[in-house]
Amino acid sequence: MPDDDIKRTTINAGKNWCEMIETRNQLKERTATPDGRDPGEMIAEAGDQVASLTADFLDIVDDGTRAMQTLAAHLGTSPQDDDPLLARIYRIAHEVKGQGQTFGYELISTIGQSLCALLERTSPGEPRLTASIVTHLDALALVRARGITGDGGALGQHLANALWGEVEVVGGPPATGPRLSGGNQEGIEMPRLAVITPAALPEGATPARKPDR
């Protein structure tokens, strides 16, 4: 950017020295035009584009679930190798967590979030960790097998609460800084209910809904 387009103002001197730098609003110059498009139209078109990727997302969830199940099956066979296995599970869960809601699968995001929190908060060597990971993966597989979309309604809420109960029991308190490859989750305090197994979830799915716009 040419120097003529930059306005520099020194505010303080000495140890509190501070310079304020203001520039032309190039983003606005390039984008805000009277003959531009309406934001609502852009959102509608983008929503359709995202919806067209839903099948690919579900393939990723299914492949990821199988991969995490394979990784979890190897946990404990040689404890010194557990950390890289857990890190790989975490990365897959993190991806599932970050994308589910984009495609209208909030419950899948919630389960991924719970699994990430479990991995972030649980001390290495915690004997209940593997079983709790498997419970989360069973829940994920069940949601997919039954075609549950959205947040899963009351059943989904119950399942989410139960999984979060696992996190609360098996994991430690939320972290306040970096740990593993992440920190604590949002600090959400969810009520702890009796832990149910995914197999106990009755048949039924919430109505399908379009991805969030």
């Binding site: 501070c18 310079e19 730098i21 983003l27």
Partner: peptide, 25 residues
């Protein structure tokens, strides 16, 4: 995340309309 068309566009428009000056200390 999750990124949705609405929240992504909202942030983009915000960055266009409300640019922040830079500070050097």
């Amino acid at each position: 995340k999750p990124i949705t068309p609405a929240n992504l566009l909202s942030r983009l428009i915000y960055m266009i309309e409300k640019p922040r000056p830079f500070v050097r200390t």
